[in-house]
Design a protein around this nucleic acid. Structure first.
Lengths: 223, 223
DNA sequence: ACCTGAACACCGTTCAAGT
DNA sequence: ACCTGAACACCGTTCAAGT
């Protein structure tokens, strides 16, 4: 009567299934809790079955990262001023990173080339070039936006410790040594967990870029 | 004649020594190669000796992160315009992160409160408040600068794979699908590994912040 | 008090075996 | 071809023992 160790059917596994399950497991339980054994259990399969589709655990992490980034659709239209289109691209990228808490860790730990989601990067570079940026400036602007999105997502996304830690530690700082910190504790705590904080910085960058492209009207803002 | 298993003297170990050795080992050999056993070997001590000064490996990682950040001296003077002082603080922070390749990984994996090097943060917040930023704007500006520095360091610092990978992969992209990428390959590759790339983005942010503080002269740059 | 060695429950991965 | 189980060399950590 007891059904024991039913053998898994012949083609229950493939790279995509493994990648999706791995990312899901990491998003919910944290990167550290992904092991060959835990992933196999989640897929109702013997640990060694995974090695028929993948050579190492590293390869699973790579596949999971690509799977997460694949969801990123580049929706920047061709309408409107260039800064609005850049804004849209970056908000979408940042949103994708925030949707998969484990994705940032995967990106930081192992690069995908040097320029993450290639489709989004191509779209962004095109907009910048069309806006009149010289090749060198377009490259630098693109990297700046990429870095800011990564950093914001990395610092904001849920980590090992619960988010409450940050707020508590912040409130426990000695006020006599850190007076400004203490005075700004409330707005800092709020902005730290405000989903719109990313957009604030993005708009600062865009303002800087716009100033750089119209030097004649704002000469004092040039580098 | 053969000296074997000499017992280590009584007080060869303490938290600071362990933290310094751990950070050094991670900086040179990568985060993954830090194990209790490898660290103990480097300190010429039995693995279990470490547990007299530390409760878990996590605690060693925390100590290593704090040790790396402790080197950050806040050198921003009180002279000059506020944007120059902000610039100095952030360049120093970014420089500290780049000096210890493993530090960024430690910061992203486990937060130190929500605001990394507290002394530097206090200094930066003070400058912003003195410059006339409202509490909420000062908090948002501070977080933006912090996130950008983290992201830039994270994306730029050496990873598991050699840096060459990025450049190679970038050159192998199909030019018909990614024409702008192909056209900008040279400036992108150069900017990607240019230590001054961080300063470029920092100056963009500062330009945006300056525009935000002088709304009367540049009304079109306001958010 | 602080360093040590053996042991335990994990982990990624190899190897030979099943179907 | 693809899934499986036993085994190996690791890992972090507990426990009892040395000095």
């Amino acid at each position: 009567m007891i059904q024991r160790k039913a053998r898994a059917p012949r083609h229950t596994l493939d790279r995509a299934t493994i990648a999706a399950a791995a990312l899901e497991l990491m998003d919910t339980d944290g990167i550290r809790s992904l092991t060959i054994r835990s992933l196999a259990a989640r897929l109702s399969v013997a640990p060694m079955a995974l090695y028929n589709h993948v050579r190492t655990k590293e390869e699973i992490l790579d596949a999971a990262r690509e799977h997460g980034l694949a969801r990123l659709s580049v929706s920047a239209g061709t309408e409107g001023p260039w800064w609005d289109r850049i804004r849209e691209i970056n908000l979408a990228f940042h949103h994708a990173l925030r949707e998969h808490p484990s994705l940032v860790g995967l990106l930081v730990a192992r690069p995908l080339g040097g320029n993450a989601p290639i489709d989004a990067a191509e779209a962004q570079l095109r907009v910048l070039v069309e806006a009149g940026f010289a090749p060198d400036d377009a490259a630098r602007a693109h990297l700046t936006l990429l870095h800011y999105a990564i950093g914001s997502a990395a610092w904001t996304s849920p980590r090992v410790e619960p988010q409450a830690v940050g707020r508590e530690l912040l409130e426990r700082l000695p006020a006599e040594r850190y007076p400004t910190f203490a005075a700004l504790a409330a707005p800092l705590a709020e902005a730290s967990y405000d989903p719109k904080q990313y957009a604030y910085g993005l708009d600062l960058l865009l303002a800087g870029l716009r100033a750089a492209t119209t030097p004649s009207t704002h000469p004092d803002l040039r580098k």
